[in-house]
Amino acid sequence: MRYRWTITLILFIVTGAVLINACKKTGAPVHQARPVDFVVPDGFPDPVYRFENNPLTEEGFALGRKLFYDGRLSKDNNFPCASCHQQFAAFATFDHPLSHGFNNQFTKRNAPGLFNMAWLKEMHWDGGINHIEVQPLAPITAPNEMAEDIGNIIAKLEQDGTYREMFRQAFGDEEITSQRMLLALTQFVASLVSADSKYDRVKKGLAVFNVSEQEGYRIFQAKCASCHTEPLFTDLSFRNTGLELNTYLMDYGRMEITNNPADSLKFKVPSLRNVALTGPYGHDGRFTGLSQAINHYAEGVAPSATLDPALTNGIPLDDVETFYLREFLFTLTDSSFIGNKRFAAPE
């Protein structure tokens, strides 16, 4: 009698397991990507980009990181995103007014640092890009930058088994599309958060400004913060700061996007975070050093029809104030960001 019970029980369990398995839809890929939390630093506003249709995962980030550092995204395989966006320069181009692109050409504008990108409503000095996911298409296809065709890139990546496997891990199967490439790049770039400078530690009560920095902060708040608004150190607006038209580049900034003469010579207010690392300064890199850039507001503002009203008389700053201001701006350098191995070129 006992053996009968045992047989029945085994029969029951086996059949049940078989049936439950049969019930499952066959062929559905098992999506193993591990989710990553996007952490908004204390005091920061809500980000613009929320990874809503692009869930942040370890695998998506790793793929984006590999793509960011891969020269195959350019026509001659020499210009990865990272050629103009160097981590040690807070992802700007170190010491270059304009960056170098395909076939010995220069870019039209100074490469901005890449950090806190998830808070930007528009990318580029002229705000021409309305969504972070589609930004990479601009430098990739620009003939004087990476000069490549997206279809060619996909063909190059498809030949690489490592990429096929990484796309599978990130998106569930090996298919490589422009959309998946852009989503992965966005996972990497939007994860570049910089919020651990001395300034941030002072704000958290973990450090104190020295006397010079404190005085610089006071001057900053009185004279600069209306445009370079904390905590992003930009109000994300477009303004004409009295830089005369560069007659070689003939760059009218925001007007080239809006066709509106009222936007002539307006450019995006850049963040001042990591500013000590991102020189030269200005949309065309015309100011070599920080002192020159500050001095422009004291002495160099050129009048024009679209000049920002706040700059009609420039910003009076004497040499002593400029010194203190610089001391404060140095506290915006985020050493842990530029040293973060997670953001460095993959091994």
Partner: peptide
């Protein structure tokens, strides 16, 4: 942001700049 299918930017109907 990034679209696919008929709206894939590789189809040459998308302004990148």
């Amino acid at each position: 942001g990034a679209q696919t299918g008929a709206l894939d930017p590789t189809l040459g109907m998308f302004w990148t700049w």
